[in-house]
Design a protein around this nucleic acid. Sequence first.
DNA 1: TTTGATTTTAGAATAAGTATAAATCCTGAT
DNA 2: ATCAGGATTTATACTTATTCTAAAATCAAA
Lengths: 131, 131
Amino acid sequence: MKGLNLTTQRKAVYDIVRNSNDHPTAAEVMNRLVEQGYNFAYGTVYNSLRYLTDKELIRELKLGESASRYDAKLDEHQHIICVSCGRVDEVMSSVPEDWKQAVAKETGYDVHHANVVFGGMCPQCLKKRTN
Amino acid sequence: MKGLNLTTQRKAVYDIVRNSNDHPTAAEVMNRLVEQGYNFAYGTVYNSLRYLTDKELIRELKLGESASRYDAKLDEHQHIICVSCGRVDEVMSSVPEDWKQAVAKETGYDVHHANVVFGGMCPQCLKKRTN
DNA sequence: TTTGATTTTAGAATAAGTATAAATCCTGAT
DNA sequence: ATCAGGATTTATACTTATTCTAAAATCAAA
């Protein structure tokens, strides 16, 4: 591939992001690395996450929380956060094209992309609620 | 009103947010306060912004940048950021109801709200571009 | 196998925001 | 007016997430 240099540390970080289904933060990636017996410098984890993001092997998610999360799912999709337990799920249903066009018309912008973060109550928390 | 205590500092902060059209960050609010001859503690500015947010006089915007922005426009709306110059504009066209329903169906969530941040090129930057 | 480039490391630095404790300000009952 | 109690402000310390830096380690190629 186009000059991809996957060192031990980058590979380990990539594998964690790939094999996690909960969009871990840098700190969570760090914890899981330690669980697996690695002991990389904090800066290396951040560097690796940035490198992998630049190479488009993973995506950085800014969902309005204090820390960025990372996602190895690359096809265009959005996210939904449970207001009760904080879990993050994928939303595959894509932004309606005609809405994007309406926004372009309204604002005069050439609209490149949309980042959408839904908030709501996840099925599990809905069940736990008022019974 | 419902126990609203607008001190000098809170009023001054509120006025700045209200009279700005660029969704200032806390640091920008601070700068504008200094320009107006005020000299409040940093903590006071943060406290005031939180107080005003709690009282629903302003809204905190988390647009995926490092710092929160503040907006005195209260009706539901979204935002668009210029990828070239960074300016932030309002998007009044609202999230299509049927899309929200599709997302609820797909995820099983009870969808409460959606935060949308569009990215694109603003009219001014479009004009400046390749001429 | 020396040289140069790249990467990792440890730790310092930064940026945004929160917590804390003392000082100040307000308000309302004596 | 005046004092007590609560709320607010202030200055400063702290936290969290992340980036920067400079030295050490690793790799790759001549």
